[in-house]
Design a binder for these strands. Structure first.
Lengths: 176, 176
DNA sequence: GTTAGTGCAAACCTTTTGCAGCTCT
DNA sequence: AGAGCTGCAAAAGGTTTGCACTAAC
């Protein structure tokens, strides 16, 4: 049972801890993963087959508004849905490989430095910050180079080099 | 007429410079603003009343894939559509006020530092980077404080303090 | 003349909404 | 008991697709 600060935080605000919410909270907080609505919905369904997708949306919206989860896009790799993660973790950037979909998290002082500079530069009060980076991971750089090479061979002469940011939209490809 | 590096870049790749594309390119490059599809579509329509929304989508997709424009969310202030801007500008972060919708751009060395650290830390090759920050601008911090104060007065006792990240979704509010 | 690009209509996917009934506190 | 939540069905964005026609090179 997830008896962490998230649930406490909700109780304080008089938010009801329904069975559905407990399930969703536990999934988000415990896995610490980047889950989209569909994944979350299916996982929740294993524990409560009657749960509705709409409840997942509503719960996430509430958690986001309450500053308990962060909403990510992960560079829209894999579609236009959103991904969610706990805010219990320390602030970090998301580094998404546009070829394999793997997502790395970067914690490091440049992030805090950036945050502070923005706050002092504009006199801005930051509530949420999001850094997402897309490109090729170490592994895929090599594979990518090979692919480009092959293409250049196939179309012997007028080799239109594949556009830099081009990405195949393979629905819900799993990293790895 | 926009005779800048963007058009050149397209010509080199054998992309046809249709009238519609010229209009859209000029709007994006010249205004240097953060435009969503709807704004872009309406502005383009003034110059070519027959242009179709789909063409706007298709052009943006191509420009994005070609690394000529960046796609932004601006913290989803004002809805779930995307915003687009030239990539001719130097890299910068977007700082969005969740109360008035104003968007500031932050250029500054912490960004380059962050980029470099991520690249060297993971051996990652960055193609696109996006930092978006949401919160309250200097001006709105004061107004916000006043609002909270008022609310506290109205509901005398059980004052549920407004959730930190809560934001009113006023569709397409204009900054200022 | 070819082939890429456009417009139109219709589909698609993700997310939101209205409302009756259920359930936490 | 009663406001707050849920589930269901239906709608509402925002974006993409299939196809016949048009225009850039």
């Amino acid at each position: 049972m997830a008896q962490d600060s998230t649930e406490g935080s909700l109780k304080e605000r008089g938010v009801r801890l329904t069975r559905q919410r407990q399930i969703l909270l536990e999934l988000i907080d415990r896995t610490g993963a980047h889950l989209d609505v569909d994944q979350l919905y299916r996982m929740a369904k294993e524990r409560d087959p009657k749960i509705n997708r709409v409840t997942v949306y509503r719960t996430l919206k509430m958690l986001k508004a309450g500053g308990l989860v962060d909403e990510l896009d992960l560079m829209h790799y894999g579609g236009d849905q959103h991904y969610y993660e706990t805010r219990l973790k320390q602030e970090h950037a998301h580094v998404v490989c546009l070829r394999c979909g793997r997502v790395e998290e970067f914690f490091g002082e440049p992030l805090q430095r950036l945050r502070k500079q923005i706050e002092s530069h504009f006199g801005f009060q930051i509530l949420v910050a999001r850094t997402e980076v897309g490109g090729y991971c170490a592994h895929c750089q090599t594979l990518r180079a090979r692919e480009v090479e092959e293409i250049r061979h196939e179309s012997k002469s007028v080799a239109k080099p594949p556009a830099a940011g081009a990405r195949t939209r393979r629905a819900h490809a799993r990293p790895e």
